[in-house]
Design a protein around this nucleic acid. Structure first.
Lengths: 214, 214
DNA sequence: TTCCACATCACCCATATGGGTGATATTTGA
DNA sequence: TCAAATATCACCCATATGGGTGATGTGGAA
């Protein structure tokens, strides 16, 4: 039974992942904690085979920082960075931190177990496409890297000017990006887009078929 | 072991409620379904003591319609309407439908079990206040009935004109209500308010101490 | 090399939005 | 009964927002 450490600060998804691990026959829940900072200490004090690490944006050290630290101290511990679709855009940082895989946490039990199994057997699972926001009921669109950055800020409720300050570009540029996002998604305005994303109306890319060379 | 039927169309809260029931010593999960329409048929085909019914806004028959139908055919079945805070404002309809209790589904296991226990022993639990949206970190505010109606539409991403059409009043009236809501909550604009509510940043009223006469 | 996708920014314009004041009914509770 | 709360609507104004066109530079792929 592989020992799994769950790091997730929100109650609902944490309990969800806890149950998925507890119900499985190959994995055992070693511990479940809310703080990325504590994750490193947990790995020092008890035997851990796999860490399901949320990106954990709160706190001085976020989930990806913690993942880098754990990989440095314990290269044999497998780490899967799990993210909600609202937090898209951490993929590059996760790879740089040495995470073994990166996937979305709001997926079915089967998909998550699949990602875990394949990671434990040495594969590296990374999405090759960004998740897309779902239109009324059909069609979809992918985003560029910059659009994802803008999207994340839109979902925090920022206005054009605030986004421009954050990204250090002109308001006109922000407007252009948002305009493209609205065209791609079909949403009428920033507000509806933000609500849709917050409600997780996403199409998540399907799991890659072949092993990544990474 | 009392037989419990769960009716909830969203995966996450449904699985959450399923686990709370399964883990309890007094209740047994009879069935867990996504459709309010099917709930009535379920009650006809197997013995059910309690229904945890989501308001289920999707579908031709919503949760409250289904609750009314079940109460009509099986007056002995206890029904608790569970709602997310995004769907505030169904209280009156739930009472009219003959629901035994009405509470929020995104609460702790203890609170939900408490509501269930008290409902099974004949109490009727209804919130005496509407939930309030949380400001940055402190203070809160309660809403008038009309403000809650407006709030719900704001959270659907409707614009002033659309809300006015929906409520059959002038745009100016809508503006006044939203202005009041923004003042009470402290949010800078409609968008941030909608996002906050969608993210369930609510303060839920505490459970009533005494039994309702109802 | 040439083309295309992308990021950047500017300008124009119509509408949406937020903030304020003030007015008039109606309802509710003390 | 009388005051407070509530719902209704109007008007003004500054800014935000969405849609459009167009222009420039860059980097990668064919």
């Amino acid at each position: 039974m592989k020992q799994v450490l769950i790091v997730e600060d929100q109650r609902m998804p944490r309990e969800n992942m806890e149950r998925i691990i507890s119900d499985s026959t190959s994995y055992e829940l070693a511990a479940s904690i809310s703080s990325a900072e504590l994750a490193v200490i947990k790995c020092q004090r008890q035997h851990i085979d796999l860490v399901l690490m949320d990106v954990c944006t709160t706190g001085s050290k976020d989930g990806i920082d913690a993942a880098a630290e754990i990989k440095k101290q314990f290269p044999n511990i497998k780490i899967i960075i799990v993210t909600s679709m609202v937090e898209v855009g951490y993929l590059d940082r996760a790879k740089a931190a040495g995470a073994d895989s990166f996937w979305y946490k709001d997926v079915s039990r089967e998909t998550l177990i699949d990602v875990i199994d394949r990671t434990m057997s040495g594969e590296h699972i990374f999405p090759d496409k960004s998740p897309v926001v779902q239109l009324g009921n059909a069609s979809s669109a992918e985003f560029t890297a910059k659009e994802i950055e803008v999207l994340r800020l839109v979902c925090d409720g920022l206005e054009y000017g605030e986004i421009a300050k954050e990204l250090e570009c002109s308001v006109n540029t922000v407007k252009t990006h948002i305009s493209h996002i609205l065209q791609k998604t079909g949403y009428a305005n920033k507000t509806r887009l933000a609500i849709a994303v917050t409600n997780k109306k996403f199409i998540i890319p399907s799991l890659p078929e072949d092993k990544e060379t990474y």
